[in-house]
Design a protein around this nucleic acid. Structure first.
Length: 1134
RNA sequence: GGGCGAUUAGCUCAGUUGGCUAGAGCAUCUGGUUUACACCCAGAGGGUCAUAGGUUCGAAUCCUAUAUCGCCCACCA
């Protein structure tokens, strides 16, 4: 072993080992130790993204839980994947192409470019995930735009649509004129801006606005019904006067009044004419001048929207261009006031008269100018600052606009029924069956009934606050990269949904190649195979299947199977005419068989004619990889993609479509649907394996049935829509019979940052309950935001960001991992500096050296294993006992998601107990070699979830690891179990005393400035000296003593102290400045007396004696005695 | 404006049902080439647990108010 641990040298090699051994490929729960599954769906990172500390944080915590559960023997699946991140990807792709707008390309062209780009960047982020040591099952990696996912998106969209929960409507949305798209609320950035605030005459009323360009149409003047308004007369210095109406508070606030009316003659005079409540004006109708000409106004009173302290206490509204005004107009049925003043191009409409066609920005100052010229302005405050919404992408000002969009109606009631909104808890299911509910209620109940547990709990409040105020979710986006809305329109604008097509996949009957075990391209069916084919048809018939069409491979064995099966299905041959089968739309006719040339088996090339794989010890696929004439994995991939394209383009059928194909290629087909990359084809080979004539059923969404022209809605879905399906779509939904779905859903823990509790977590709960009837996960664990050392958000612009990859390079992955998690607590911000990472680099090195030392110890020939506390060595009993306590704490902590604390405990044990004491003791007691190896072995396992690399590396060189039940790889060993038999309280007490005595002597030596190397004499009296006697060698070596005496209080001058009733005397008078020593003693005495006082007051309290737990009182008494004794001793010396 | 949280050593943070003299790492100081480790060892100093009240035998921990900071949501008169 090298002197120092060098992560760079071994991390890559260890990663490869894990990969080669398929350590992270989830196993079936039936094959696991515990029979239980543990599933973690990864929050899919942006496919174009780079690893940042937020990712690092989630990866570390998820890896700790995954590795822990895997080692505990659970069938553990940590399912990785990436997110297509629609808007971000589009802008990156456009930027890379150097193009301003996607319209330069056709839609398919542009999508192709996005796909190429994401295929490329996908490798970057996944490799970075791997470098973190993340034990994800990459054979199950998914992408939110892979085929299966798109299918799932279409399926749930269609179901929601049919349930009336997805609706198209005109709603107020954030419109980005720059991006020409609707923005989600979280895509809007707010900025304080200084813009002129105008006060405008509107008849006799004065209104305020920062948006003069919108004051061009008929509008209500809105007043507060119960607040006071004044009719005030203003007379300028020339003697001209006018009457204006505005709020009373403004009239009496002279300073503000002057500001609001700063365009009026400053030498003019105000006088009060009369005071009125707002409602006195209600209903007044009048014509008044605007910048765009004469318009009609009327007075409307509304207590909800008017804040009398703002502006003049009066306003006009723009129902189409302000969310508040929109709500008011809706609420008060002001239908005729929905007037479009601004277009989607960001330019003024004709209602703006002279300003028609101007951009909003231009129109704004021009409107102000025109008003001024027309004498409509009474004031202009240029110092007004307000908060402006900006498009995070184009930077333009976001306009609230009314636009047709798709929404998820969260408050719309729908009926509980099979498969829709069914809840997992059976009691609840009964309660709710046949009842109406809403998506909002589903989300609320899941958390309220604790079916989904949120850690830390306080985020439940945040969750409810959000859900309670939730409005309909706008899911459509005007971009191209994403899932296109699966709705089609005919010429009349009628809406059509995707067709849910059931596909049955079967394999041909037994062929001649099977008994002969020779790879053949085109063998015939055997007799057995023919029977199997017939049985297949009969079975389908019996099940009441309505096979509309059979599609089969061009090879003889499948063609023949298809024919036999078809005949068995055809009515004339049917033994059960009571159950007439459906036959492809032609009553009584034959079921059509289509042959797809490219649906044949994988092509073996020159391997043909050789003995089948099983006999050569290698699978056929493995052999194919080295055979240039055989079909390559990439070729298989693209062939499978083409088949899926063909399937998706199939005309919808009312019955099922039966595919008869081949084992290997059908497997590839399923793999490709699930987004499996060619390099993993071999790993997943067994996942979809099928026997002769067995059937797999899947649901596949195809275009709707309509002979005439159909046009698909051009919008795409919000990225969060597909993310909201993540926990179940990745496991095969909508095919709920998929083994992965059955084995691993619902998932166990969803770990993510608390900032996406709403956008993601809540929506997953909503969709999962709707689609599967189950909550998607049992527990939600939320980590905090990662910030720099000073608690500032990390950002590229500030340059305070720490790049996790740099840190890995510099300190190793383990150091970064440990630093991310130790000293943190769920949901709280984590302030991470480089120093902290450095500290854990040191820790990894410490562990390395602990191992290096322990492994170099010669095993003691006389060592006898410890049997229930009979060992002679105190140190051994002590360290074994401490190890058990550690195991117990680690289990408890990890079960309760206390990752920070467990990490701390592991650190403390390694450094303080093992390295500083047990190892130091072993330099005296060489028999410790054996137990220390055992402890190290256990410790490596305990530490492995936190620092997998260094522990795995040490494991590699451990001689013990090859024996016993342990596996070659640490990642595959069983996690240590707590063994109470090894707990030894006496040993813990005795060794604790030894530690205290040694520490005290060291401290006394340092305080009295004795040369460190100097060996001195020590005398012990009082209690417990037999413990010291027994362990005199350790005592001597660790405290640097040359002679030890017991029992007699020395006569010479001594430095002294007392620990747990044991008095320590060090005769150092000739070396010590006795004045200093006096000072030290005095301080000790003072402290002891203070403590005694404290204890005394506690014990003299009746209430304490009676109310406090007895053991506590006893402890206090003992403590008191001890302190009294100590004071006595100190006083004698004084 | 509404909500949530934080405030503990010079710095960054632990402290899960209230209970020994409140802990860790870093930094500081003193001393150390003890053949596992200077990415180390031994020792030391450093805290009215933001403030003010309250509950309790007992409060960093529970309650109430105040202050400061942070985050989330809402927000164009």
């Amino acid at each position: 072993m090298e002197k120092a641990y060098n992560p760079k040298d071994c991390e890559e090699e260890i990663l490869k080992k894990w990969q080669d051994e398929k350590v992270f490929t989830a196993i079936n729960p039936n094959d696991s130790q515990t029979g239980k599954s543990f599933t973690v769906p990864i929050p899919p990172p942006n496919v174009t993204g780079q690893l940042h500390l937020g990712h690092a944080m989630m990866l570390v915590i998820q890896d700790i839980m995954s590795r822990y559960h895997r080692m505990k023997g659970d069938a553990t699946l940590w399912l990785p994947g990436t997110d297509h991140a629609a808007i971000a990807t589009e802008s990156v792709v456009l930027k890379n192409l150097g193009v301003a707008s996607r319209e330069v390309f056709s839609r398919p062209e542009f999508l192709e470019k996005c796909r190429t780009h994401t295929d490329k960047t996908h490798k970057t982020i996944t490799n970075q995930i791997k470098r973190m040591g993340a034990s994800c099952d990459f054979t199950r990696e998914r992408f939110t735009m892979d085929l299966g996912m798109s299918n799932a998106v279409q399926k749930i969209f269609t179901d929601l649509y049919k349930a009336g929960l997805i609706v198209r409507g005109h709603r107020m949305v954030n419109w980005s004129t720059g991006a020409q798209s609707v923005l989600a609320d979280d895509e809007v950035e707010w900025e304080d801006r200084k813009e002129p605030f105008y006060s405008i005459r509107c008849g006799r009323f004065v209104i305020g606005t920062v948006r003069p360009e919108t004051k061009c149409a008929h509008s209500p003047i809105v007043l507060h019904p119960d607040e006071n308004y004044v009719l005030a007369r203003f007379t300028d210095s020339a003697g001209k006067s006018e009457e204006l109406i505005f709020s009373e508070v403004l009239f009496y606030d002279e300073e503000r009044r002057n500001k609001v009316f700063n365009l009026l003659d400053e030498n003019g005079k105000w006088e009060l004419v009369s005071v009125h409540q707002g409602k006195e004006f209600e209903g007044q109708k009048f014509e008044a001048e605007t910048y765009a000409g004469m318009r009609i106004f009327f007075v409307l009173c509304d207590a909800q929207v008017i804040d009398i302290k703002k502006g003049t206490g009066a306003m006009t509204i723009s129902a189409n261009h302000s969310a508040d005004d929109y709500d008011l107009a809706k609420r008060r049925n002001l239908d005729e006031y929905f007037i479009e003043k601004i277009g989607f191009d960001g330019k003024m409409k004709s209602i703006a008269g002279v300003l028609e066609g101007e951009t909003v920005q231009e129109a704004r100052w021009k409107a102000g100018k025109t008003m001024k010229e027309k004498g409509l302005l009474v004031g202009k405050d240029t110092s007004y600052v307000h908060n402006v919404p900006l498009c995070y992408r184009s930077g333009c000002v976001v306009e609230p606009m009314i636009s047709p969009q798709w929404f998820i109606a969260v408050e719309k009631e729908f009926l509980w029924q099979e498969g829709v909104g069914r809840i997992r808890n059976e009691e609840l299911e009964m309660k709710n069956k046949g009842e109406k509910t809403t998506l909002k209620k589903l989300m609320q109940d899941a958390v309220r009934e604790k079916q989904v547990k949120i850690i830390p709990e306080r985020f439940e409040k945040t969750y409810f606050q959000w859900i309670d105020n939730l409005r309909d979710w706008c899911i459509s986006r005007q971009i191209w990269w994403g899932h296109q809305i699966p709705i089609w329109y005919d010429e009349q604008g009628k809406e059509y949904t995707a067709h849910e097509q059931t596909l049955l996949f079967s394999r041909h009957g037994e062929s001649e190649a099977e008994p002969s075990n020779i790879l053949q391209k085109n063998p015939l069916l055997t007799k057995k195979g023919e029977t199997q084919a017939k049985e297949l048809g009969e079975k389908l018939l019996q099940e009441g299947r309505r096979i509309a069409k059979i599609i089969c491979s061009p090879l003889e064995r499948s063609k023949k199977t298809a024919e036999i099966c078809r005949d068995a299905l055809t009515p004339s041959n049917s033994p059960t005419p009571l159950n007439p089968p459906f036959s492809g739309g032609k009553s009584g006719g034959e079921i059509p068989i289509e042959i797809w040339e490219d649906f044949d088996e994988i092509r073996f090339g020159d391997l043909e004619g050789t003995v089948r794989a099983t006999e050569t010890g290698k699978t056929t696929m493995e052999r194919m990889m080295n055979e240039p004439t055989a079909e390559s994995l990439e070729d298989l991939h693209s062939r499978a993609l083409k088949i899926w394209e063909k399937i998706s383009a199939l005309p919808p059928e009312d019955g099922e479509i039966l595919f008869i194909g081949h084992r290997a290629f059908t497997g590839i087909l399923f793999a490709v649907r699930d987004g499996v990359k060619p390099e993993h084809f071999i790993d997943v080979r067994k996942r979809w394996e099928m026997g002769n004539c067995t059937v797999k059923e899947i649901t596949w969404m195809v275009k709707p049935k309509k002979d005439s022209f159909l046009r698909q809605d051009e919008d795409t879905l919000d990225t969060w829509f597909s993310s909201a399906l993540w926990p179940f779509s990745t496991l095969g939904w909508p095919d709920t019979k998929n083994p992965d779905f059955q084995n691993f859903f619902p998932t166990s823990v969803l770990e993510t940052g608390h900032d996406i509790l709403f956008f993601w977590v809540a929506r997953m709960i909503m969709f999962s309950l709707f689609a599967t009837g189950k909550n998607p996960f049992e527990t939600v664990y939320l980590h905090g935001l990662v910030c720099d050392e000073e608690g500032k958000k990390m950002s590229k612009s500030k340059g305070n960001g720490i790049d996790p990859l740099d840190m890995i390079e510099k300190y190793g992955t383990d150091a970064l991992r440990m630093a991310m998690v130790v000293g943190t607590t769920p949901g709280n911000q984590v302030n991470l500096g480089e120093k902290k990472i450095e500290g854990y680099r040191n820790f990894a090195n410490k562990l390395w050296n602990v191992a290096r030392y322990i492994l170099a110890l010669p095993l003691h020939p006389d060592y006898k294993p410890l049997t229930n506390g009979n060992a002679e060595l105190l140190t051994e009993r002590w360290i074994l006992s401490k190890t058990q306590r550690l195991i117990q704490e680690v289990h408890k902590g990890l079960e309760n998601h206390q990752y920070g604390e467990v990490g701390q405990k592991l650190y403390d044990f390694t450094w303080n107990d093992l390295a500083d004491w047990a190892i130091e003791a072993s330099k005296t007691e060489t028999q410790l070699a054996h137990p220390l190896q055992e402890v190290l072995k256990t410790l490596l396992k305990l530490l492995h979830p936190y620092i997998p690399f260094v522990t795995e590396k040490i494991w590699e060189v451990m001689p013990l690891s090859t024996g016993g039940h342990d596996t070659l790889l640490l990642a595959l060993t069983a996690f240590p179990e707590y063994d109470e038999a090894l707990i030894d309280e006496k040993a813990e007490y005795d060794f604790g005393l030894l530690q205290e005595v040694i520490t005290k002597i060291r401290s006394l030596r340092a305080a009295t400035k004795v040369e460190p190397a100097k060996k001195i004499k020590a005398i012990f009296t009082g209690s417990n000296i037999e413990i010291l006697q027994k362990n005199e060698l350790i005592l001597k070596n660790l405290a640097r003593l040359e002679e030890v005496l017991y029992g007699e209080i020395p006569t010479e001058k001594c430095v002294t102290d007392m620990i747990s009733g044991t008095e320590i005397y060090l005769p150092l008078s000739e070396m010590v400045n006795m004045e200093d020593e006096k000072g030290r003693l005095k301080k000790e005495l003072l402290e002891a007396e203070k403590l005694l006082q404290n204890l005394d007051s506690r014990l003299s309290n009746e209430q304490y004696i009676t109310s406090a737990p007895p053991h506590l009182v006893a402890e206090t008494r003992a403590k008191k005695e001890e302190v009294e004794k100590k004071i006595e001793t100190l006083k004698i010396l004084f």
